[in-house]
């Protein structure tokens, strides 16, 4: 379940990207998930068939790390604490590990839908 995003439109215009990047960085830090050691992709809601399938397709190491991050974040949240600075997610670590797989699955589903509604003209 990927969210609608303006990212590609912004990235296509360098001047716009230059303006928006500091704002985006500020927003990501302010959102606070990095201070709990999470990545942006950890926040994608799991309650959909697509995401469940994508989670199944994660490599074993990625899946393990994801569960570790989530549990650590829950623990922090319960204890009303933030992680020490060195354990917080750095911007360089905040990579999209799940959304490419989700996009792939969505593309598959779309292709299936397209092929299903295909109209056929006979060869002349």
């Amino acid at each position: 379940m990927s969210q609608p995003s303006l990212a590609s439109a912004i990235r296509a215009r360098p001047w716009l990207q230059k303006m928006v990047t500091p704002l985006a960085n500020w927003y990501c830090n302010a959102a606070g998930y990095r201070k709990l050691g999470l990545r942006a992709d950890d926040l994608i809601p799991e309650e959909s068939e697509t995401v469940l399938l994508a989670l199944k397709r994660l490599p074993p190491q990625e899946a393990y790390d994801r569960v570790f991050r989530l549990r650590r974040a829950f623990q922090c949240s319960l204890a009303h604490q933030l992680l020490p600075k060195d354990q917080q997610t750095k911007p360089s670590e905040d990579i999209a590990y799940l959304s490419p797989i989700i996009k792939e699955i969505e593309a598959e589903a779309k292709e299936r839908l397209d092929l299903e509604s295909l109209s056929i003209t006979k060869r002349k």
Binding site: E108, E111, R112, L115, L118, I120
Partner: peptide
């Protein structure tokens, strides 16, 4: 192309 496309195309 995807497996699905291969199947559908050859079906057609």
């Amino acid at each position: 192309r995807s497996a699905l496309r291969i199947t559908r195309e050859s079906e057609l």
